[in-house]
Write a protein that binds this DNA or RNA. Structure first.
Length: 493
RNA sequence: GCCCCCAUCGUCUAGUGGCCUAGGACAUCGCCCUCUCACGGCGAAGACAGGGGUUCGACUCCCCUUGGGGGUACCA
């Protein structure tokens, strides 16, 4: 039994899209599960739209997700390279020449305008648009004449009208296409580049790909490709067409649905393990109950047989929930390690402070952890720990600092806390409890005004914990400010 | 237009003829925990697109309709 070889073959015309990432993931999972090889090939035959920047973005996205490739750009496994289609032109030409020699392909001199007109006419007559084979039987003289006119030729594959082509799909079963509906498609463009449907066959064959796992949008192209395999005497690989990923409106996921690039999700604070887990569940499931899978578990449990056929709507809410799950699974040290760069970037701390306060930051992160939906949330939710430069929620100030007992509350609290010798949650709590008794208010009524004074808002970790982390000096400073604000509110009454 | 694929709660899905009074997860709602918000716990509501067959028996098999998606390029 030969080794499993799969590939991910993006065209570098933009960022790594989540749909592409999911395709890459399924290929990677299958390869790792089967102990096979995962090949990365860049399909850059569209000169006008391919960019180096996109190539780099895609590679970076793959690395970030942890989808390592055994062969491809940057991996020194040159056995079946090069791995950029633009560097494989002579290979394609060799097979095009072969087809031409055997009369399995022919030169076509029709112009774009002529083809347009032809299609319009066919549509008008209610026929399926299909190349009319005008150039299918050109003589050498005809060709010379066209060339003399300055026309450039494309190469077309000579397809048959007889019979049907079977695509044996591992996910969908046998799918049949009448050969009659396939036309003589172009395999070499006038700029000399091969078309997708041709290059993909040559590369998959030469790279010994055993399983082609790709999006369902390629299913309809597969019979054309199979015909090329047959014409060249290549054995066709196994095919597995996985369902599309759709936006909330059930149309193909695109930019207008929000973030679609892996890089964007990274910037928005999503963890790669969460994205991987979520993407794995789009079109695949293991059983009725399990949702959370580690990378190793995914590798161990993945199978094509458990892939679904129906398209899946991308649900950002579930991704956010899952991201929270992974965020909570992080140890305080891991969370801190990932968060510190963001805190530095936001200007809340500098590098030296990050090192000096490592333990404190770790504790702060642990306190914030269950409240995070995304990694970037750490900046906003921890701001008041690092700077006085935060905004007070106006409504909250009015509501809680305007309470009739507020001035008295801050006065008592300040007196009590100033006297505290060893600053700890326990000693802070003791003061709060005695003030609560004195005021005869519910604990919540005591704490909420303090929370507003200390954090600027109504949401934070436990109050005693926050005060302890703030340290005595800073806590008292914020409480004095709270007292002032309470007095101001009282005046305005 | 033609060809192909798909069809279970709002969403992702389990389900391979009787185990289904259709299970889980996200989202929603309620309760509990509680100093707020989260987390966590408990609970509620919520689906087999429609119509024909086949069968003793259909969510499961077949056909049609409807709906959605994809392809039909010198894009990939």
């Amino acid at each position: 039994m030969s080794e499993v070889r799969v590939r991910f073959a993006p065209s570098p015309t933009g960022a790594l899209h989540v749909g592409s990432a999911r395709t890459a993931l399924f290929n990677w999972l299958f390869a790792r599960n089967q102990g096979g090889k995962f090949v990365l090939r860049i399909e850059d035959t569209d000169l006008a739209r391919s960019t180096q920047e996109s190539v780099e973005g895609i590679l970076e996205g793959m690395r970030w997700l942890g989808l390592d490739w055994d062969e491809g750009p940057g991996a020194d496994a040159g056995e079946y390279g090069p791995y950029f289609q633009s560097q494989r032109l002579e290979l394609y030409q060799k097979y095009i020449d072969l087809l031409l020699e055997q009369d399995k392909a022919y030169l076509c001199y029709c112009t774009a305008d002529e083809l347009d007109a032809m299609r319009k006419e066919q549509m008008a007559k209610g026929e399926a648009p299909k190349y009319n084979r005008k150039c299918a039987c050109l003589s050498a003289d005809d060709r010379e004449k066209f060339a003399a006119e300055g026309r450039t030729a494309v190469v077309r594959f000579r397809s048959t009208d007889e019979g049907r082509t079977k695509v044996a799909d591992l996910i969908r079963g046998d799918v049949y296409f009448d050969n009659e509906v396939l036309d003589d498609f172009v395999i070499r463009k006038s700029d000399g580049m091969p078309t997708y449907n041709f290059a993909v066959v040559i590369d998959d064959a030469l790279m010994r790909i055993t399983h082609v796992i790709r999006g369902e949008d390629h299913l309809s192209n597969t019979p054309r490709q199979i015909q090329v395999y047959e014409a060249l005497g290549f054995a066709a690989p196994e095919f597995a067409h996985i369902p599309m990923i759709l936006g909330p409106d059930k149309t193909k996921l695109s930019k207008r649905h929000g973030a679609t690039s892996v890089t964007q999700y990274r910037e928005d604070g999503f963890l790669p393990e969460a994205i991987m887990n979520y993407l794995a569940l789009l079109g695949w499931s293991y059983n009725a109950t399990q949702n959370i899978f580690s990378r190793d578990e995914l590798v161990e449990k993945f199978s094509l047989a458990k892939c679904t056929k129906n398209p899946a709507v991308f649900d950002i809410k579930k991704l956010e929930w899952m991201n929270g799950v992974y965020l909570r699974e992080l140890s305080a040290a891991e969370l801190t390690q990932r968060a510190v760069p963001l805190l530095i970037a936001a200007g809340l701390i500098d590098k030296a402070e990050a090192e000096a306060q490592e333990e404190r930051i770790k504790t702060i992160m642990a306190a914030l952890q269950t409240r995070l939906h995304s990694l970037v949330d750490v900046v906003d939710s921890s701001r008041y720990f690092f700077t006085d430069d935060f905004t007070y929620d106006e409504k909250a100030v009015k509501k809680f600092l305007g309470r009739p007992y507020a001035v008295k509350l801050f006065g008592l609290l300040l007196t009590g806390l100033e006297a505290v010798e060893s600053w700890s949650q326990e000693s802070i709590e003791a003061v709060f409890k005695s003030v609560q008794q004195e005021l005869d208010e519910k604990l919540g009524n005591v704490i909420q005004p303090v929370r507003v004074a200390v954090t600027g808002g109504t949401v934070s970790p436990g109050m005693y914990e926050v005060l302890e982390l703030l340290d005595k000096e800073l806590s008292l400073k914020r409480l004095r400010k709270g007292l002032e604000m309470a007095q101001q509110q009282a005046k305005q009454e």
